[in-house]
Each structure stands twice: as C-alpha cells, then as structure tokens.
C-alpha cells in the first residue's frame, strides 16, 4: 500500500467531524451545570438520576419499545417473503412489485408520512401507536429486504434440492434447511429494523397523535434549556445501545454469509 499522509489525516479529521457532536454527549451528560457550554464545571451523575426519575420519559420509552419490537417483527417477516420470492422465483410483475416495495428508500419520509396521514384522516382511522407501527413498517421493510436478499443469495440451491429429493416437503425443507441458514440474516434484519424504528421521528410525530414516543419526546424537550442535560444523558445511553445493537447485527450478518460459504464484503448498505 502506498502511503498517503495527507489523505490519511484528512480522513481522520473527517471522522472527527462525524463523531464530534456524538463525543459531546457523554462530556456534557456528566458535566455539573445546566448550561451546556465550556468550560466544564465538574463531574456529576445527577442528570442520569433526573432522567431515570422522569415518568413521562419512561412512558415514552415503553411506547417506543412496543413500537420498535412490532415494527422489527413485521418488517422482517414481510422482508423474508419478498426476499425469498425475488431471489428464488421468476414471476410476472416482479420488477415493478420489487421497486414498489423498495420505493420508501428513495422517497422523502415526509411524503410517505403525509400520504398515509391524509388517507387515515379521510377514512377516519384514529391515530395511535398502531398507526405509527403501520407507517414505520413501510420504512423498515426495504432495509429488511436488502439484508435478507443478500442472505438468501448466498444460499446454496443444491442443499434445498437434496432435501426435496430425500422426501422433505417444500415447507419442511424451508423450516429445516433454509431457515437455519438464513437465521443470522433474519436476526441482523430484526436488529436493524429495531434500531431504525427506535430512532425514527417523522412518522412517530405525525402518525402518533401526540402519544409520548421517545424520539418525539426528545425533540420536544430540547426546546427547554433546563431539560437539555438530562436529554444528553439519555442520548448517551441511546447511542451506546445503538452501537451495541449494530455491532451485534454486523457480527450476525458476517457469520451468516460465512456460514453459507460466501465472502464478506462492505457494510450494511
């Protein structure tokens, strides 16, 4: 490898820019001052205590958890159907159907949220956590399909044919052979959809009818300067959680590809 000191230091600087705001989170979450500014005032864990005592926050966290678990489950199941169909079978209308499923990736989220909202309001469905789940599933499904497609692609077709030749039914083949092999992909998809849903704001805000949901709650609290430090404490925890979940998802994804004999390359996207 050629050395490129200039490019290397630029890249490190770029990473610093990317991580800068996130690095501020723990610094000010432990800073003993309500004002988020330098110089630092001393160490405290008080903001974490304030955060833990906040009843509204707990409600919001509970709701977010319900939403994220539901969205991750539904999106992954829908993702399995679509990915399996598109990798394994040829059928008419496959192109348009797949583009329709992947469309939310290239549509501003606001448009998806507003279109759905207009329809829900018009036919009189009351907004609730359920409508948030419906909307977020739409956003998460393309990610699930993308991850699961690469999981199904790395599957060796002859294993399936062997099982069928040995007298298994298509369903038992799927359950006994295919499912275990793509399990790491399924887990990765579940974790990533969970993370996206947990962090998602637009749909939670507009389809949630003011129900306390974590991202919406955070957005609201940042407007009150007195609340900012405890939000930074919360942010520190959420960032840690995201990194752990994603590290685990990436580990599962790699193990899945390696298990099926493929070569690991690139990241999630």
């Amino acid at each position: 490898m050629k050395k490129a000191p200039g490019l290397r230091s630029y890249t490190l600087f770029y990473l610093l820019f990317l991580y800068g705001p996130i690095l501020l989170l723990p610094i000010f979450a432990f800073n003993d001052s309500r004002v988020v500014a330098f110089p630092l005032q001393g160490f405290t864990t008080g903001w974490f205590a304030e955060m833990a005592a906040d009843q509204n926050l707990r409600n919001a966290a509970k709701n977010s958890l319900i939403i994220a678990l539901s969205v991750a489950t539904i999106s992954t199941v829908l993702g399995i159907f679509a990915a399996r169909a598109s990798v394994r079978y040829r059928f008419p209308g496959k192109g348009p159907l797949m583009s329709m499923i992947m469309l939310p990736l290239v549509l501003p989220e606001m448009i998806v949220a507003m279109a759905l909202l207009v329809v829900l309001l018009s036919i009189g469905i009351p907004l609730s956590l359920f409508t948030v789940i419906l909307g977020q599933t739409l956003i998460c499904t393309p990610f699930a399909v993308a991850i699961l497609t690469s999981a199904f692609q790395s599957l060796d077709r002859s294993l399936e044919e062997a099982a069928l030749d040995l007298g298994e039914t298509p369903w038992s083949t799927f359950r006994l052979i295919i499912l275990p092999l793509v399990m790491p992909g399924i887990l990765a998809s579940f974790l990533i959809c969970f993370t996206i849903s947990f962090d998602e704001f637009i749909i939670a805000n507009f389809l949630g009818s003011g129900q306390p949901i974590l991202s919406v709650y955070i957005f609201g609290q940042f407007r009150f300067p007195a609340k900012v430090p405890s939000m930074l404490a919360l942010g520190t925890l959420l960032v840690l959680l995201s990194i752990i979940l994603l590290g685990f998802a990436e580990y599962m994804r790699r193990r899945g590809i390696a298990k099926a004999g493929g070569k690991v390359s690139g990241g999630f996207l």
Partner: peptide, 13 residues
C-alpha cells in the same frame, strides 16, 4: 445509525 433526532438536537446545542 445513531439517533438522527439526537444528532440534530446536538447541533442545536
């Protein structure tokens, strides 16, 4: 992959 809302709010601060 870290919360978008937190990153934007941080810039606000």
């Amino acid at each position: 992959w870290t919360s978008y809302i937190i990153r934007v709010s941080l810039w606000f601060v």
